[in-house]
Design a protein around this nucleic acid. Structure first.
Lengths: 254, 254
DNA sequence: GTGCCATATTGGTCCGACCAAATCTCCAGC
DNA sequence: GCTGGAGATTTGGTCGGACCAATATGGCAC
């Protein structure tokens, strides 16, 4: 609770409220003095939180009052918080994130494949081999592995902008973070294997276009699996992890 | 000068200094009190600037001092400022940005093509037709048009994450902003035309993979042209626009 | 109802202060 | 000479209060 500074926790509160839709876009949010009183802190602390929100792109500050910005104008960095909202992400947002991740990996595959060093190429093939073995055994593919492969590709691309994009999609370089959302994904091994094979060959042959296509399709298998699983879970009662989360102000959502 | 608040201008100063490499990564930057005195403002103003930098990901603040963060860990939002540094962007960064933009458009093309409404599809084809006419006339392709096409594709994808990524690559939704860097690009029309043709058909036939490939190659033509032009310009003295820019602290860059 | 002006409100900045944690300094002890 | 640690210093985090200019608001005159 006191781990992060008060400023940080206030910023998080406000950010999440905005992302949750508690304030309508364009609406003025409470004044600094008001919020300071409400949170029991000094106004300057709230101001610092506001600066964060402004830089995050979820609010704009002008004399007369701070207003909520349309989410389409926010920073990529909001994705992380969008997915972490209320403990478990909105299925629609999650699907779009996985879709974007698929496209992003495809992009990284193209550039990374064409520019990888010998060592990087070897590492990628190694990861693919692990995935193939997993598939052959009939086990579920590990989402972490494809995340890691994506990271290798980004690294191999040597493109700083790609790295920055990844930061937004997969904060803290945390493989787990994304894999968590894909836990339980069970893509069909019969579909996965030929793609792994195709990808390996593309990497060996420095064929960016083919690698891109294969990675995209591969990621899409995960995405589809997650989506199916999510829609299943939606009908039955939730009984998995995150006990006690979602106790906050609750489901306003308008 | 006074248009932005003091906080904003201080934040910009520090940000640019960091991006320029004035402070080495991991190095402690001056204390709030120190900077406050140096800029002639109160400490709280500097603090607010620091919060921005922290949210931008170019610095981390802990008790004991703020430190410069490795640029690979920054937010995508730094790209804008990286390109605007010293008036004219570093050729290497510019090339990477155009490369990322190419890959990004390819991603958008895939998703956008598959999901566009009739109207969106028509609009895209319209833009392509304009480009074709330009090419047939033998005129230089207009970078703005391909930017606009990219925006249509992003819009058509309906993917919020893609929109957020675009914000980072092409701030303010400003078509000009990116096109400015591509001014003078003269991709070979003989190479451009068949790609335009291919792309049109892919959009009509809702063929995401082909559209993606075509858009990528198309964007790469622009990129290549810009790169060639930049390397040319590097040898001869600059005599184009932006008079008086680049007078700042200059080329430290270590 | 409409237009305008006085007033309350809001953000921007400043001053000065205290605390806890981190950093640095410097001297004792090995 | 090197090391370790106690103490002084610095640093960020927060607070209280204050002034200004721009904005928003309410109410009054038309």
């Amino acid at each position: 609770m006191s781990f992060p500074s008060q400023e940080a926790s206030i910023a998080s509160n406000l950010r999440d409220d905005i992302l949750r839709g508690h304030y309508r876009c364009g609406e003025r949010l409470p004044s600094e003095r008001d919020l300071a009183q409400r949170f029991g802190v000094h106004r300057s602390t709230v101001r610092e939180a506001f600066k964060r929100l402004a830089q995050l792109g979820v609010a704009t500050i002008h004399p007369g009052g701070a207003r909520v910005a349309p989410i389409e104008e926010a920073s990529l960095d909001v994705v992380e918080h969008l997915l972490a909202l209320d403990g478990s992400p909105d299925p629609e947002i999650l699907d779009q994130a996985l879709e974007a991740m698929s496209g992003f990996r495809a992009m990284a595959a193209r550039l990374g494949t064409e520019r990888a060093t010998i060592e990087q190429r070897a590492h990628m093939l190694e990861i693919l081999e692990t995935m193939m073995r997993t598939a052959e055994r009939g086990d579920n593919a590990d989402a972490k592995l494809i995340s890691e492969l994506g990271n290798c590709l980004v690294e191999a691309s040597g493109n700083i902008i790609l790295k920055l994009m990844r930061n937004g999609l997969q904060p803290h370089g945390d493989l787990e973070a994304e894999a968590k959302f894909m836990r339980g994904a069970e893509p069909n091994n019969a579909e996965v294997e030929p793609l792994l094979w195709r990808l390996s060959h593309a990497i060996e042959n420095v064929d960016g276009a083919t690698a891109s296509e294969a990675v995209y399709l591969l990621s899409c298998l995960f995405r589809r699996s997650v989506r199916e699983q999510t829609s299943e879970r939606q009908t039955e009662p939730r009984l998995d992890s995150e006990p006690g989360a979602r106790s906050a102000q609750g489901e306003v959502q308008s």
